[in-house]
Design a protein around this nucleic acid. Structure first.
Lengths: 329, 329
DNA sequence: TTTTAATGAGTAAACGTTTACTCATGAAAG
DNA sequence: CTTTCATGAGTAAACGTTTACTCATTAAAA
């Protein structure tokens, strides 16, 4: 094993003390230009990388942010992670990713591991519960924790789900639909509820009857089954607001099997504006969430709270828009 | 600021020395059952989490693995990351995610940051270049680095792209296609080339003419444009092997605009067996890569090399299979 | 009873940084 | 010529662990 190279090595080779090397690296205290040049040269030569672990120990913070996400495979979450990681890296933070696979036990384990790592902060993407982690600043994005109301010191960044539901429903109404239904999945979190609320408000505003269908799960099969059952039962239907692009696709598959055309007979909206929405045939009208803005806001809030620049808890709701496509023409 | 709790705090409260606390935590040396109970109780009580940073500094390794990925948004990469993170976590390793966005400069920066963090290992997902990082063990997955041949100490896990190309072509031949073409994207890496090779071998084995189309990029639009131009130029076509599901979808969109039916007039295969393949209409026959196995193999190789249990470089090629669906019926 | 061995637990050094003190040098000010 | 002050750079403590040495106590062996 060849001997470790550390500051002492560099200092020795450059004929200075470790303190001076540290000062050069961090552009801190005082040092002459020629000292700097000599130190830098040796560092290059030996391909030296300052040991972040020792630095973290000394400085008492790790410059690591933990990101807890239910499933990185979900395109919407992946988009958020991508942006968050990018922005954090620009601020010289590393991102450690934690997949919980929706398991509470796994989430707990991940949190413990992050606390042991003395992460500078934690971002929960679509986190269900609010943990009051005393020593570390926490931001929730994409979903307000279920116990939001009870506990106050909680920072949340969401998109405007109620408006999303409203916009989708309003679009169908504008296109002349009279028998509109919403299709959501059984596992209904706060976001889904808000979308439902928006949908209800839009219909009420136009004196239309409010109906809703609950699929057993957020899957193509469940959506197809539900919509087929609904249609076969003789219910009239010419507009469908889905809480997810996947549900919209499932619905279309179900309707196709019944020989019902989209958008001729039934117009449909999805939610999330995922890649699917533009690739599918017909292309899907979908509510677009400002993923990049959400990531930006999340990171800036996190950094502000970490610096102590801001203390109060807050909730930010970012605007959405409707991307109109073939399913509503 | 309330005072830090560390081993000394715990030791004091439990009436033992820090060494004993450490031994209890790590189940190392000797200690009595009642001492253990007392220590554990105090730890619980104070909600103590051992400081990984100090531990890492002392033990000279971080138990962090860096995963460098071009784009976490790509479903295939996201799947790999998900599995890798899961397996690593089971082995008590953390995963720090590094998106390079295909930028060499960013990749370099990420590598420097990882080396400074003294990561225990680095996994390159679909990495272009092979870096000889002396101090850290490296495994490449999904793609063999371009300079693989020149440098020897390099561990690679791939799936069998040549077989994939062969299987896809063979399926079309079996279904009676005579005028078969491959559609690939200009940015052709080693994997794409292997798929092309497999395709060529299959056609040659059945004495069929080998043709290939190059789309300007791996996008729906480029694929649609290319396939329309090819068809309008009067070329016969009844089978199409695409190197990506996205290209397959693009091709179908282009053909649809020309009134050409899939699979009646032209049969098509995709590659990656992404979510799109089963959701699209018609569902897409696609080559399935063993993502989970690749992740497992990658992690086990990494751990073995880190332990020094294995030293030699190696290349592992995992088998693929063809998921047949509507586009080839 | 004496010797030997096993057990439980403490002491202190080391890991690689950062930074509060310190100090020598030389220039400017008196 | 003395005093003051800015500059450049070194010394050593601290961050929170782990672990090689200790050593006292007690049990087993002789």
């Amino acid at each position: 094993m060849k001997d470790k190279i550390n500051m002492k090595t560099i200092a020795g080779r450059a004929g200075v003390s470790v303190a001076t090397v540290s000062r050069v690296i961090n552009q801190n205290g005082r040092f002459s230009a020629e000292t700097e040049a000599r130190v830098r040269h040796v560092m290059e030569e030996m391909n030296y990388h300052p040991n972040t672990i020792a630095k973290s120990l000394r400085e008492q913070h790790s410059r690591i942010i933990g990101v807890i996400v239910p499933d990185i495979t979900n395109a919407h979450f992946a988009g958020l992670v991508l942006e968050i990681e990018k922005i954090l890296f620009e601020h010289a933070y590393s991102t450690v990713i934690c997949n919980t696979n929706e398991s509470d036990a796994l989430e707990k384990k991940h949190i413990d591991a992050l606390l042991s790592q003395r992460v500078s902060g934690i971002i929960f993407i679509s986190g269900k519960r609010h943990y009051s982690l005393h020593d570390v600043t926490v931001v929730y994005v994409d979903r307000r924790p279920d116990n939001y109301d009870t506990d106050s010191d909680c920072v949340v960044v969401e998109s405007d789900n109620e408006s999303g539901g409203y916009l989708a429903a309003e679009c169908l109404i504008r296109k002349g639909c009279k028998d509109i239904t919403m299709l959501y999945a059984r596992t209904m979190d706060h976001n889904q509820k808000m979308r439902l609320t928006g949908y209800q408000k839009a219909l009420a505003a136009h004196d239309l009857a409010v109906r809703a269908l609950e699929a057993d799960s957020v899957s193509v099969e469940a959506a197809a089954a539900k919509i087929k059952a609904y249609s076969r039962a003789g219910n009239r239907l010419d507009g469908l607001v889905c809480t997810t692009d996947l549900l919209a696709i499932g619905a279309m598959i179900g309707l196709r099997e019944l020989g019902i055309g989209v958008p001729e007979d039934v117009k449909i909206t999805g939610y999330d504006d995922s890649a699917l929405a533009t690739l599918y045939h017909p292309t899907i009208t979908s509510v677009h969430q400002p993923v990049r803005d959400m990531a930006r806001k999340t990171v800036s809030l996190l950094l502000d709270h970490m610096d102590g620049r801001q203390k109060e808890s807050a909730r930010y709701v970012l605007p959405v828009y409707l991307a109109e496509r073939e399913t509503t023409t």
